[in-house]
């Protein structure tokens, strides 16, 4: 549906010649419903005609057109989408057009829809847009599956566009991961993650995608082959913003199932030291140090001195306990968690 079409005033279906043979079917919600539905005229009439063709199992170009109208009014209406797929199948429509249609919906380009949202002032619009995203993604996947690898680059571009509007869009990321695994197109994915992380180093979705790529791309050789260069990359990201939960967790993930290498990696303990020396934003550096010690790491005197210097008023003879005390103090909302960590430490005599 292009924007010209949308700019034209809406003509009620009851006044359109091609619909004169159809008797609209109103929604039957039963008496005095629990969540009563109040309908607006435009929406009501569209849905009444939809119900009529839905019940009559009509597979026709006008039915397809009506589903477009109904979806533009309410992109989360899953029954309309499902009916649309049946019509598309029956009419053997060229599905490339569907990609454009879902893109209009995905970008919230529907003027009608924006108007509705504007009118609503309701918190539920976030829930509704989430449901809509789920519904159009589902449709998009159905279309892409039918089109096969000819759709690969278009799908990657499409999700890129959505992610340029909302870089953490859960459904767009799901779709993108599905495309990579089902249709391919891994070549530029690590670069794409670089770009997004450079744009916003706190973007946890981009870090997750990075892990997805290094562990699953058929082109990169897996976690072990990638570890060295990834540790280097991540350490730089941590230095840039040491308060970033995502980069610290990613670093830990690079040593998944290999605690020994993690404890012995000079890069890991030295990034803790480096961040702690700056004396700010060191909650994750401290928690990493605590994990390291719990797994048998022996901290250097330099590290001990830096941690002890953070602790006021008195330091514990046990470094791990000191770390917990500092964390209780600096991360008060999770004080009970750090207290629990302290209680789990082996008792020193």
């Amino acid at each position: 549906m292009d924007s010209d079409e949308e700019n034209q005033p809406w003509i009620p279906l009851s006044q359109r010649l091609e619909w004169s043979d159809v008797t609209p079917v109103p929604q039957n919600d039963g008496p005095n419903p629990v969540v009563p539905i109040a309908y607006q005229d435009h929406f009501t009439e569209t849905m009444d005609y939809f119900r009529a063709i839905f019940q009559a199992h009509e597979r026709s170009p006008r039915a397809l057109g009506l589903t477009s109208e109904a979806i533009l009014l309410n992109p989360g209406h899953y029954t309309v989408w499902q009916f649309r797929r049946l019509v598309l199948e029956a009419l053997s429509v060229d599905l490339h057009g569907e990609l454009d249609f879902t893109e209009t919906i995905a970008k919230g380009n529907s003027k009608n829809y924006q108007l509705w949202v504007k009118k609503s002032f309701l918190a539920i619009s976030s829930l509704v847009s989430n449901i809509s995203a789920d519904t159009y993604r589902h449709h998009r996947r159905w279309v892409a599956e039918k089109l096969g690898t000819t759709a690969t680059s278009k799908e990657l571009e499409f999700t890129k566009k959505i992610l340029s509007l909302d870089a953490k869009h859960y459904h767009a990321w799901s779709h993108r991961q599905w495309v990579l695994q089902a249709l391919g197109g891994w070549e530029d994915e690590l670069n794409y993650c670089d770009d997004l992380i450079e744009e916003d180093v706190f973007n946890n979705s981009a870090w997750n995608q990075r892990y997805f790529v290094i562990t699953r791309s058929p082109l990169l050789g897996g976690l072990n082959a990638m570890r060295e260069s990834e540790v280097k990359y991540t350490v730089n990201a941590i230095i840039a913003r040491p308060e970033n939960e995502s980069s610290w967790r990613y670093l830990r993930g690079l040593y998944r199932d290999d605690n020994q290498s993690w404890v012995n990696a000079p890069a890991v303990s030295s990034i803790c030291l480096k961040v702690l020396s700056t004396k700010t934003n060191h909650v994750f550096a401290l928690s990493t140090l605590l994990d390291l010690i719990s797994h048998g790491f022996h901290p250097s005197q330099e590290l001990r001195d830096i941690v002890n210097a953070l602790s006021t008023p008195e330091s514990d003879s046990d470094l791990a306990r000191t770390v917990c005390t500092v964390l209780e103090d600096e991360d008060p909302i999770r004080a009970d968690y750090w207290k629990w960590r302290k209680s789990k430490l082996p008792q020193v005599s």
């Binding site: 009563p36 109040a38 309908y39 209406h77 609503s120």
Partner: peptide
């Protein structure tokens, strides 16, 4: 909830 005539909320969650 939703008794208000023409509420957007009730229209979009009909399904």
């Amino acid at each position: 909830v939703g008794k208000k005539k023409g509420s957007f909320e009730s229209v979009v969650i009909e399904h």
